[in-house]
Structure formats: structure tokens, C-alpha cells
Amino acid sequence: MSHKVYLNGEFLAQEEAKISPMDRGFLFGDGIYEVVPCYDAKPVGLGLHLARMNKGLSEISLNYKAELSEWADIIQTLIGQFESTAVSVYIHISRGCDIKRYHAYPKDIAPTIFAYAFEISPSQSVQIDKTKTYKVVTGEDKRWQRCHIKSTSLLGNVMHFQQGQDAGVDEIILYNEQKMLTEAAACNVFVVKDGIIMTPKLDNQLLPGITRNIALEAMHKDGGFKVSEQDISVETLCTADEVWLTSSSKEIGPVVQVDDRKINDGIPGPLWQKAQTAYNKYKFKL
């Protein structure tokens, strides 16, 4: 039995949900999306996710505003279909369906509002022997210059992610023309060197990740961490004591290999363990 999805105000069986091929989300990738992880029926950072979505919608002049109370109810209905305690909800708002394909934003069309839920891995364990770890390669960032917008136009990210898959690893960490890190294909990046936890400062080259945000706030609230948002060179990455990936599905994921170099002898580092513990403590409170 398929699970129900949400489409334009209705909950429908997945096979019954239909979107026109003239929808601008299909033709142009003209839309914004979010992925909200939920554990034990509790969304992580829902207010932060919707605030980022609304900012993105405003930046592309798409006339829709996601309301917290409405989406909290929709999410509870979607995740309530699952026995699993670990479920994510994908939310997709496209500009909608027009009668012709034309680059300029059309006027007076209704947005297409879609969401569905799917099972994910349990919350990241802080026990070293039960922790999922990651291997990555590095590569030059060749995407567009508005990566701070969580657009459904993800081909650049998809192509970079495939580079990692073709190399037989989990992800690719990207750097710009100045050899400074931006982000990974589907994650933000943290680098630990000499006890300092660094992450690239926010600008148009990277997405302001919600997990990144919560992790920074959790480390600040918990105390005992030295954290810096700054430029990070590829050279620093290659000599790092620890490297982490953050995303809604990975939470704080420890990297154990960058290109051909093992990180911390191939096991998660001590600061990762402290950071993930702090994240778990605050992830439902921010």
C-alpha cells in the first residue's frame, strides 16, 4: 500500500497525485524546497526550515508564504502514516502551471504545493562503533552563484554528487577558484584544526544549512567549543584533525577520508562526539 502525499490542499494516494508537464517546476526547476527530518514524531528545526523557505520564495518572487501552524499539521499527517520513528518530509513549492513555456515569471498563476514523507536512518549515534562515517573527494565548485537559495534546480549539485559516486565515495567537498571551501554537493562542511571548529562563512556560494545552524547554536549554548565561521583553504582541509558533513539526513556526519588521506586514523574524532551530543541535546529546542 502506498502512502498518501499532499498536493495543493489534498492528501492523495501517491499514484493519484498528478502534476502537469506545463508546471514551471518541471520545465525550469522554478521553485523552492525543504527537507524536514522528524524523530519520534518531532520535526527538527521546523521554524528554521520554513523561514528559509519563505526567504527563498521571496528572493525568486514566488507568491506563497509557508505558515508554521499549517505545515506542522500537514507534517504530522504525513509522518503519522509510518511506524518508523525516523521520517523526513520533503516540501516542494513551484511557481505553478502556465499555458506556455516562457522564461519570464507569469502573472496570476497558482503555485504548486507538494509534500511527501519517507523513512530515513535513525538519529546519529555518538557511540563510535555505531556511527555512520563518510569518505569524500574534493573538486572545484562549478555551480551557479546563488547557492544560498534552496532552489529545486539542482542539476549542478547532482553532477557534483555523481563525481563522488563515480569515485566510489559518499560525497564531494567543493572549493572555489581561490581554493577556499564552499560546501559539499548536498551538505555543509566543518573542519577541525588544533582544537578550532571552522565552517565557511555564509555567502552566495553556499546554502545556509539548518543543521549547520542548529549545530553552531548547540555548540554555543553547550559551551566548551572554539568555533569560527571563516574562509577555509583546501590546504587546511587536507591537514585537518577532523572533518564533518552536516545535513538534515546526516546530522553531524564524521568524515574519515578526504581524497586518499585518512582523517584521525579513519575513526570519528573526539570533538565530533562532543558536537553531536550537543546537537542531540538542542535539536528540538531551536
Rank of each mutant, 00 (worst) to 15 (best):
K201W: 09
K65I: 15
I75A: 06
I113Q: 07
G156H: 13
I197K: 06
C238Q: 15
K274V: 00
Y6P: 07
K107F: 12
M180R: 14
G209M: 10
A17P: 00
M219P: 07
A72V: 10
R146V: 12
H148M: 04
K262R: 12
L181A: 00
V192N: 01
Y282F: 14
Y90A: 04
G9L: 05
D141A: 05
G164F: 10
Q81W: 00
K135L: 06
F225A: 08
R143Q: 03
I263W: 02
Q81I: 02
A115D: 07
T112C: 10
Q163L: 13
E183M: 01
V89N: 01
A117G: 06
W144E: 00
W244N: 03
G224Y: 05
K283T: 08
I263L: 01
D203I: 02
E177T: 12
D265G: 15
Y116R: 11
L68C: 03
T182P: 01
A41N: 15
I232Y: 05
C97N: 12
G269D: 01
S88W: 02
E10S: 12
V87Q: 05
H160Y: 04
L245M: 02
E67L: 09
H160Q: 11
L155V: 07
W272K: 11
V158M: 10
I120K: 10
A184Q: 07
T77P: 08
M219D: 06
D108W: 05
K65H: 15
L68Q: 11
I214G: 08
T131C: 10
L78K: 06
I99H: 14
D222G: 14
G47V: 09
E34N: 10
